Amino acid sequence: MSDLSFFVPALIAVAAFCIRLPGLLRNPRDPLLRAVAMLLLTAAGVFLFGMIPMIAWVNDLVGVPNSAAPFVYSILTAFSGCCIVLLINWRGGSATRIRQATRWCLAVYGLVIVGLFTFFALGDAPVERLRDLDTYYATTPYIREMIVLYLVAHAASSLVMTSLCRRWSREVTGELRAGLNLMVCGYLLTVAYDVCKFAAVGARWAGHDWDGLSTDVARPLASLASPFVAIGFGLPLVVQRLREPWADWRRYTRLGPLWRLLSNLSPEHPRVRISWLASPGVRVMRRESDIHDGFLTLNPYFERSVHDAAAADALARGATPEDAEAAADAAMVVAAKEALLADPERRVIASSRALQDRLGGFRDLVGISRVLGRRSPAGAAMRLTARG
Protein backbone atom coordinates (compact mmCIF):
# COMPACT_ATOMS: atom_id res chain seq x y z
CA MET A 1 0.00 0.00 0.00
CA SER A 2 1.30 3.48 -0.83
CA ASP A 3 2.95 5.42 2.01
CA LEU A 4 0.85 8.39 0.92
CA SER A 5 -1.98 6.85 2.96
CA PHE A 6 0.29 7.23 6.01
CA PHE A 7 1.77 10.63 5.12
CA VAL A 8 -1.59 12.43 4.71
CA PRO A 9 -2.93 11.47 8.19
CA ALA A 10 0.45 12.43 9.67
CA LEU A 11 0.27 15.85 8.00
CA ILE A 12 -3.31 16.37 9.21
CA ALA A 13 -2.33 15.46 12.77
CA VAL A 14 0.61 17.89 12.72
CA ALA A 15 -1.62 20.67 11.36
CA ALA A 16 -4.22 19.96 14.05
CA PHE A 17 -1.51 20.07 16.72
CA CYS A 18 -0.28 23.45 15.44
CA ILE A 19 -3.86 24.78 15.63
CA ARG A 20 -4.22 23.57 19.23
CA LEU A 21 -0.75 24.73 20.31
CA PRO A 22 -1.66 28.40 21.12
CA GLY A 23 -4.44 27.25 23.45
CA LEU A 24 -2.05 24.82 25.16
CA LEU A 25 0.56 27.56 25.63
CA ARG A 26 -2.07 29.81 27.21
CA ASN A 27 -3.33 27.03 29.50
CA PRO A 28 -0.42 24.59 29.93
CA ARG A 29 -1.97 22.99 33.04
CA ASP A 30 -5.29 22.15 31.36
CA PRO A 31 -5.40 18.30 31.40
CA LEU A 32 -7.79 18.09 28.45
CA LEU A 33 -5.62 20.30 26.26
CA ARG A 34 -2.53 18.31 27.25
CA ALA A 35 -4.28 15.05 26.40
CA VAL A 36 -5.38 16.38 23.00
CA ALA A 37 -1.86 17.64 22.23
CA MET A 38 -0.24 14.33 23.16
CA LEU A 39 -2.80 12.39 21.15
CA LEU A 40 -2.15 14.48 18.06
CA LEU A 41 1.63 14.25 18.44
CA THR A 42 1.64 10.48 18.91
CA ALA A 43 -0.83 10.03 16.05
CA ALA A 44 1.46 12.02 13.77
CA GLY A 45 4.40 9.92 14.96
CA VAL A 46 2.60 6.63 14.31
CA PHE A 47 1.88 7.51 10.69
CA LEU A 48 5.12 9.37 10.02
CA PHE A 49 7.48 6.73 11.39
CA GLY A 50 5.27 3.90 10.13
CA MET A 51 6.23 4.72 6.55
CA ILE A 52 8.75 2.33 5.00
CA PRO A 53 11.31 5.06 4.09
CA MET A 54 11.21 6.42 7.66
CA ILE A 55 11.71 2.92 9.09
CA ALA A 56 14.79 2.48 6.90
CA TRP A 57 16.04 5.97 7.87
CA VAL A 58 15.77 5.23 11.60
CA ASN A 59 17.61 1.93 11.14
CA ASP A 60 20.43 3.71 9.27
CA LEU A 61 20.54 6.54 11.80
CA VAL A 62 20.90 4.25 14.80
CA GLY A 63 23.14 1.80 12.96
CA VAL A 64 21.39 -1.28 14.38
CA PRO A 65 19.22 -3.44 12.09
CA ASN A 66 15.50 -3.19 12.87
CA SER A 67 16.07 -0.64 15.66
CA ALA A 68 13.06 1.25 14.31
CA ALA A 69 10.79 -1.58 15.46
CA PRO A 70 10.73 -0.84 19.22
CA PHE A 71 10.69 2.87 18.43
CA VAL A 72 7.60 2.61 16.19
CA TYR A 73 5.92 0.13 18.53
CA SER A 74 6.54 2.51 21.44
CA ILE A 75 4.93 5.42 19.61
CA LEU A 76 1.96 3.21 18.76
CA THR A 77 1.72 2.14 22.40
CA ALA A 78 1.92 5.76 23.57
CA PHE A 79 -0.86 6.66 21.12
CA SER A 80 -3.02 3.86 22.52
CA GLY A 81 -2.51 5.17 26.05
CA CYS A 82 -3.20 8.76 24.98
CA CYS A 83 -6.52 7.70 23.46
CA ILE A 84 -7.66 6.29 26.78
CA VAL A 85 -6.34 9.31 28.72
CA LEU A 86 -8.15 11.72 26.41
CA LEU A 87 -11.42 9.84 26.78
CA ILE A 88 -10.99 9.84 30.58
CA ASN A 89 -10.54 13.64 30.58
CA TRP A 90 -13.19 14.17 27.91
CA ARG A 91 -15.86 12.31 29.83
CA GLY A 92 -15.15 14.31 32.98
CA GLY A 93 -15.94 13.53 36.59
CA SER A 94 -14.18 14.32 39.84
CA ALA A 95 -10.68 15.71 39.47
CA THR A 96 -9.30 13.07 41.84
CA ARG A 97 -10.79 10.19 39.86
CA ILE A 98 -9.51 11.63 36.57
CA ARG A 99 -5.97 12.04 37.96
CA GLN A 100 -5.90 8.51 39.37
CA ALA A 101 -7.19 6.93 36.17
CA THR A 102 -4.74 8.96 34.09
CA ARG A 103 -1.78 7.96 36.25
CA TRP A 104 -2.70 4.28 36.13
CA CYS A 105 -3.02 4.38 32.35
CA LEU A 106 0.28 6.21 31.87
CA ALA A 107 2.04 3.85 34.27
CA VAL A 108 0.80 0.71 32.53
CA TYR A 109 1.63 1.90 29.03
CA GLY A 110 4.94 3.33 30.23
CA LEU A 111 5.91 -0.12 31.53
CA VAL A 112 4.91 -1.63 28.19
CA ILE A 113 7.24 0.78 26.38
CA VAL A 114 10.11 -0.15 28.74
CA GLY A 115 9.35 -3.81 28.06
CA LEU A 116 9.49 -3.28 24.28
CA PHE A 117 13.01 -1.86 24.36
CA THR A 118 14.11 -4.46 26.91
CA PHE A 119 12.97 -7.39 24.77
CA PHE A 120 14.57 -5.89 21.66
CA ALA A 121 17.87 -5.44 23.50
CA LEU A 122 17.77 -9.06 24.69
CA GLY A 123 16.84 -10.46 21.27
CA ASP A 124 18.73 -10.85 18.04
CA ALA A 125 17.33 -9.49 14.76
CA PRO A 126 20.29 -9.13 12.36
CA VAL A 127 18.33 -9.17 9.07
CA GLU A 128 16.60 -5.87 8.30
CA ARG A 129 12.89 -6.35 7.59
CA LEU A 130 11.05 -3.19 6.58
CA ARG A 131 7.58 -4.63 5.94
CA ASP A 132 7.27 -8.04 7.54
CA LEU A 133 9.27 -7.90 10.78
CA ASP A 134 6.23 -9.12 12.78
CA THR A 135 6.02 -12.41 10.91
CA TYR A 136 9.71 -12.86 9.98
CA TYR A 137 10.79 -12.79 13.64
CA ALA A 138 7.58 -14.30 15.06
CA THR A 139 9.50 -17.29 16.45
CA THR A 140 12.72 -15.51 17.47
CA PRO A 141 13.26 -15.46 21.26
CA TYR A 142 12.63 -12.07 22.91
CA ILE A 143 11.80 -10.43 19.57
CA ARG A 144 8.73 -12.67 19.61
CA GLU A 145 7.84 -11.39 23.09
CA MET A 146 8.32 -7.79 21.94
CA ILE A 147 5.91 -8.32 19.05
CA VAL A 148 3.29 -10.00 21.23
CA LEU A 149 3.60 -7.31 23.93
CA TYR A 150 2.94 -4.45 21.52
CA LEU A 151 0.03 -6.30 19.89
CA VAL A 152 -1.55 -7.11 23.26
CA ALA A 153 -1.20 -3.50 24.46
CA HIS A 154 -2.62 -2.15 21.21
CA ALA A 155 -5.50 -4.63 21.12
CA ALA A 156 -6.35 -3.95 24.77
CA SER A 157 -6.53 -0.22 24.06
CA SER A 158 -8.73 -0.78 20.99
CA LEU A 159 -11.14 -3.01 22.90
CA VAL A 160 -11.29 -0.64 25.89
CA MET A 161 -11.92 2.37 23.65
CA THR A 162 -14.58 0.50 21.67
CA SER A 163 -16.37 -0.50 24.87
CA LEU A 164 -16.11 2.92 26.54
CA CYS A 165 -17.21 4.84 23.44
CA ARG A 166 -20.12 2.48 22.82
CA ARG A 167 -21.29 2.65 26.42
CA TRP A 168 -20.97 6.44 26.59
CA SER A 169 -22.75 6.94 23.25
CA ARG A 170 -25.91 5.49 24.81
CA GLU A 171 -25.92 8.25 27.44
CA VAL A 172 -25.49 11.30 25.17
CA THR A 173 -27.06 12.83 22.07
CA GLY A 174 -26.22 15.15 19.20
CA GLU A 175 -22.73 15.67 17.86
CA LEU A 176 -21.12 13.95 20.86
CA ARG A 177 -23.03 10.74 20.15
CA ALA A 178 -22.18 10.98 16.44
CA GLY A 179 -18.50 11.44 17.26
CA LEU A 180 -18.49 8.49 19.65
CA ASN A 181 -20.17 6.26 17.08
CA LEU A 182 -17.55 7.23 14.50
CA MET A 183 -14.85 6.36 17.02
CA VAL A 184 -16.50 2.99 17.62
CA CYS A 185 -16.27 2.29 13.87
CA GLY A 186 -12.62 3.37 13.83
CA TYR A 187 -11.66 1.23 16.80
CA LEU A 188 -13.51 -1.78 15.42
CA LEU A 189 -11.32 -1.44 12.32
CA THR A 190 -8.32 -1.20 14.65
CA VAL A 191 -9.44 -4.41 16.35
CA ALA A 192 -9.59 -6.00 12.89
CA TYR A 193 -5.99 -4.78 12.33
CA ASP A 194 -4.91 -6.52 15.53
CA VAL A 195 -6.77 -9.72 14.57
CA CYS A 196 -4.93 -9.82 11.23
CA LYS A 197 -1.59 -9.28 12.95
CA PHE A 198 -2.27 -11.96 15.56
CA ALA A 199 -3.48 -14.38 12.88
CA ALA A 200 -0.32 -13.88 10.78
CA VAL A 201 1.98 -14.28 13.79
CA GLY A 202 0.02 -17.30 15.04
CA ALA A 203 0.25 -18.89 11.60
CA ARG A 204 4.03 -18.57 11.75
CA TRP A 205 4.03 -20.33 15.12
CA ALA A 206 1.99 -23.15 13.54
CA GLY A 207 4.36 -23.38 10.57
CA HIS A 208 2.10 -21.66 8.04
CA ASP A 209 2.59 -18.55 5.90
CA TRP A 210 -0.21 -16.00 6.33
CA ASP A 211 2.12 -13.02 6.01
CA GLY A 212 -0.24 -11.28 3.60
CA LEU A 213 -2.64 -10.62 6.46
CA SER A 214 0.04 -8.57 8.18
CA THR A 215 1.56 -6.76 5.20
CA ASP A 216 -1.33 -6.38 2.74
CA VAL A 217 -4.47 -6.31 4.93
CA ALA A 218 -3.50 -4.89 8.32
CA ARG A 219 -1.82 -1.71 7.02
CA PRO A 220 -4.84 -0.62 4.91
CA LEU A 221 -7.10 -1.28 7.92
CA ALA A 222 -4.94 1.06 10.02
CA SER A 223 -5.17 3.78 7.37
CA LEU A 224 -8.93 3.30 7.07
CA ALA A 225 -9.44 3.47 10.84
CA SER A 226 -7.57 6.74 11.33
CA PRO A 227 -10.15 9.08 9.68
CA PHE A 228 -12.98 7.58 11.74
CA VAL A 229 -11.07 8.06 14.99
CA ALA A 230 -9.82 11.55 14.05
CA ILE A 231 -13.23 12.80 12.93
CA GLY A 232 -14.87 11.16 15.93
CA PHE A 233 -12.58 13.04 18.31
CA GLY A 234 -12.74 16.29 16.36
CA LEU A 235 -16.44 16.52 15.49
CA PRO A 236 -17.75 17.42 18.97
CA LEU A 237 -14.90 19.89 19.52
CA VAL A 238 -15.52 21.63 16.18
CA VAL A 239 -19.29 21.74 16.65
CA GLN A 240 -18.92 23.15 20.16
CA ARG A 241 -16.52 25.78 18.83
CA LEU A 242 -18.96 26.77 16.05
CA ARG A 243 -22.18 26.54 18.05
CA GLU A 244 -21.87 29.93 19.79
CA PRO A 245 -21.01 31.93 16.62
CA TRP A 246 -23.82 30.14 14.78
CA ALA A 247 -26.29 31.00 17.58
CA ASP A 248 -25.11 34.63 17.43
CA TRP A 249 -25.61 34.72 13.64
CA ARG A 250 -29.13 33.30 14.00
CA ARG A 251 -30.02 35.87 16.65
CA TYR A 252 -28.47 38.65 14.56
CA THR A 253 -30.57 37.61 11.54
CA ARG A 254 -33.77 37.16 13.51
CA LEU A 255 -33.43 40.63 15.03
CA GLY A 256 -33.34 42.12 11.52
CA PRO A 257 -37.04 43.12 11.14
CA LEU A 258 -37.14 44.85 14.54
CA TRP A 259 -33.80 46.55 13.94
CA ARG A 260 -34.88 47.82 10.52
CA LEU A 261 -38.11 49.17 11.99
CA LEU A 262 -36.24 51.15 14.65
CA SER A 263 -33.27 52.29 12.55
CA ASN A 264 -32.85 55.93 11.61
CA LEU A 265 -35.31 57.18 14.23
CA SER A 266 -32.80 59.86 15.15
CA PRO A 267 -31.09 61.11 11.95
CA GLU A 268 -29.02 63.55 13.97
CA HIS A 269 -27.29 60.56 15.58
CA PRO A 270 -26.10 58.41 12.66
CA ARG A 271 -25.09 54.84 13.43
CA VAL A 272 -21.39 54.11 13.73
CA ARG A 273 -20.47 51.34 11.32
CA ILE A 274 -18.53 48.36 12.62
CA SER A 275 -15.82 46.48 10.78
CA TRP A 276 -16.91 43.76 8.37
CA LEU A 277 -14.45 41.55 10.25
CA ALA A 278 -16.39 41.96 13.51
CA SER A 279 -17.43 38.72 15.19
CA PRO A 280 -21.10 37.61 15.27
CA GLY A 281 -21.20 38.32 19.01
CA VAL A 282 -20.11 41.93 18.46
CA ARG A 283 -22.68 42.33 15.70
CA VAL A 284 -25.46 41.02 17.95
CA MET A 285 -24.49 43.40 20.75
CA ARG A 286 -24.45 46.32 18.34
CA ARG A 287 -27.83 45.41 16.86
CA GLU A 288 -29.39 45.00 20.32
CA SER A 289 -27.90 48.33 21.38
CA ASP A 290 -29.48 50.02 18.35
CA ILE A 291 -32.83 48.40 19.17
CA HIS A 292 -32.75 49.58 22.78
CA ASP A 293 -31.81 53.08 21.61
CA GLY A 294 -34.88 52.95 19.38
CA PHE A 295 -37.03 51.90 22.32
CA LEU A 296 -35.78 54.88 24.31
CA THR A 297 -36.69 57.20 21.44
CA LEU A 298 -40.18 55.70 21.12
CA ASN A 299 -40.81 55.43 24.86
CA PRO A 300 -42.97 58.60 25.18
CA TYR A 301 -45.24 57.28 22.41
CA PHE A 302 -45.90 53.84 23.89
CA GLU A 303 -49.58 53.27 24.61
CA ARG A 304 -50.55 50.57 27.08
CA SER A 305 -54.01 50.37 25.55
CA VAL A 306 -52.53 49.31 22.21
CA HIS A 307 -50.51 46.60 23.96
CA ASP A 308 -53.51 45.25 25.88
CA ALA A 309 -55.79 45.25 22.83
CA ALA A 310 -53.22 43.40 20.70
CA ALA A 311 -52.58 40.87 23.48
CA ALA A 312 -56.30 40.16 23.87
CA ASP A 313 -56.70 39.79 20.09
CA ALA A 314 -53.74 37.35 19.86
CA LEU A 315 -55.04 35.25 22.75
CA ALA A 316 -58.47 35.14 21.14
CA ARG A 317 -56.82 33.78 17.99
CA GLY A 318 -55.30 30.90 20.01
CA ALA A 319 -51.79 32.24 20.55
CA THR A 320 -49.76 31.11 23.54
CA PRO A 321 -49.20 33.68 26.32
CA GLU A 322 -45.57 34.13 25.19
CA ASP A 323 -46.55 34.67 21.55
CA ALA A 324 -49.39 36.98 22.59
CA GLU A 325 -46.97 39.09 24.64
CA ALA A 326 -44.54 39.32 21.71
CA ALA A 327 -47.37 40.30 19.32
CA ALA A 328 -48.61 42.93 21.78
CA ASP A 329 -45.14 44.41 22.18
CA ALA A 330 -44.70 44.45 18.40
CA ALA A 331 -48.07 46.21 17.95
CA MET A 332 -47.15 48.83 20.52
CA VAL A 333 -43.77 49.46 18.86
CA VAL A 334 -45.39 49.84 15.41
CA ALA A 335 -48.03 52.23 16.84
CA ALA A 336 -45.35 54.22 18.67
CA LYS A 337 -43.28 54.66 15.52
CA GLU A 338 -46.34 55.80 13.57
CA ALA A 339 -47.11 58.26 16.38
CA LEU A 340 -43.53 59.57 16.28
CA LEU A 341 -43.68 60.04 12.49
CA ALA A 342 -46.94 61.93 12.95
CA ASP A 343 -45.20 64.24 15.44
CA PRO A 344 -42.33 65.76 13.41
CA GLU A 345 -41.85 68.55 15.95
CA ARG A 346 -41.40 65.99 18.73
CA ARG A 347 -43.92 67.71 21.00
CA VAL A 348 -44.68 64.51 22.87
CA ILE A 349 -41.01 63.97 23.63
CA ALA A 350 -40.58 67.56 24.75
CA SER A 351 -43.56 67.33 27.11
CA SER A 352 -42.57 63.93 28.53
CA ARG A 353 -41.27 64.09 32.09
CA ALA A 354 -40.43 60.43 32.70
CA LEU A 355 -39.90 57.21 30.80
CA GLN A 356 -42.87 54.88 30.65
CA ASP A 357 -42.69 51.73 32.75
CA ARG A 358 -42.51 48.69 30.44
CA LEU A 359 -42.71 46.04 33.16
CA GLY A 360 -38.94 45.54 33.17
CA GLY A 361 -38.46 46.13 29.46
CA PHE A 362 -39.07 44.13 26.31
CA ARG A 363 -38.11 40.59 27.29
CA ASP A 364 -38.31 38.78 23.94
CA LEU A 365 -36.64 40.84 21.24
CA VAL A 366 -36.47 37.89 18.85
CA GLY A 367 -40.19 37.19 19.38
CA ILE A 368 -41.09 40.81 18.61
CA SER A 369 -38.87 40.77 15.52
CA ARG A 370 -40.41 37.50 14.35
CA VAL A 371 -43.91 39.02 14.56
CA LEU A 372 -42.79 42.08 12.63
CA GLY A 373 -41.22 39.93 9.94
CA ARG A 374 -44.36 37.91 9.24
CA ARG A 375 -46.12 38.24 5.92
CA SER A 376 -49.28 36.57 7.13
CA PRO A 377 -52.88 37.55 7.98
CA ALA A 378 -51.89 37.47 11.64
CA GLY A 379 -49.10 39.95 10.98
CA ALA A 380 -51.46 42.20 9.02
CA ALA A 381 -54.01 42.00 11.83
CA MET A 382 -51.30 43.05 14.28
CA ARG A 383 -50.55 46.13 12.20
CA LEU A 384 -54.26 46.98 11.93
CA THR A 385 -54.58 46.63 15.69
CA ALA A 386 -51.60 48.95 16.10
CA ARG A 387 -53.20 51.57 13.89
CA GLY A 388 -56.55 51.19 15.64
Rank of each mutant, 00 (worst) to 15 (best):
P267L: 09
M1I: 11
R260F: 13
W104F: 10
E268T: 13
G92Q: 07
P28Q: 06
D357A: 11
D308T: 05
G207W: 11
L133Y: 07
Y187R: 14
P227W: 01
L298F: 02
L296C: 08
P141S: 07
A68S: 00
P141G: 05
P300A: 07
A69W: 01
T140V: 06
G115V: 10
A153M: 11
F117N: 02
P220C: 02
E171M: 09
A178Y: 09
L133I: 06
H208A: 13
A310H: 02
S74D: 02
N27P: 00
A350V: 08
G202K: 13
A35I: 02
I84V: 10
R304N: 13
R273L: 15
F295Q: 11
G281H: 14
I19N: 05
A206L: 12
V108P: 07
G110I: 09
L149N: 12
A230K: 07
R374D: 05
L164N: 07
S275F: 05
R304S: 12
P65L: 13
L4G: 01
V191R: 05
A43H: 04
E322D: 15
T102K: 15
I52K: 14
N89D: 07
I19L: 15
R286M: 10
P28V: 01
T320S: 15
F198C: 11
A101S: 14
G207I: 04
C18Q: 06
L224H: 04
R20D: 13
I349C: 13
R166N: 11
S80F: 03
A200C: 04
S169P: 07
S376E: 12
V172D: 07
G63T: 00
L258C: 02
T140N: 09
R254Y: 09
L242E: 08
M382L: 15
Y301F: 03
L340G: 03
S94M: 06
C82Y: 09
V46R: 03
R20N: 15
G367P: 01
A350T: 08
I147E: 12
I368A: 10
D60R: 15
L255R: 12
S275A: 09
M146D: 06
I274C: 08
L151M: 14
R271V: 10
A326P: 03
S67N: 00
V72E: 00
F6Y: 10
A178L: 13
R287T: 02
G361M: 06
L277N: 12
P227F: 00
I113G: 02
D134G: 01
K197C: 05
L164I: 10
D132P: 00
A312W: 04
L372H: 07
L180P: 00
D134V: 01
R144L: 11
F120M: 03
L122G: 03
C18N: 08
P280N: 07
F17K: 09
R167A: 12
D134L: 05
L242C: 09
V58R: 00
W168P: 00
V195Q: 04
V148Y: 13
T162N: 08
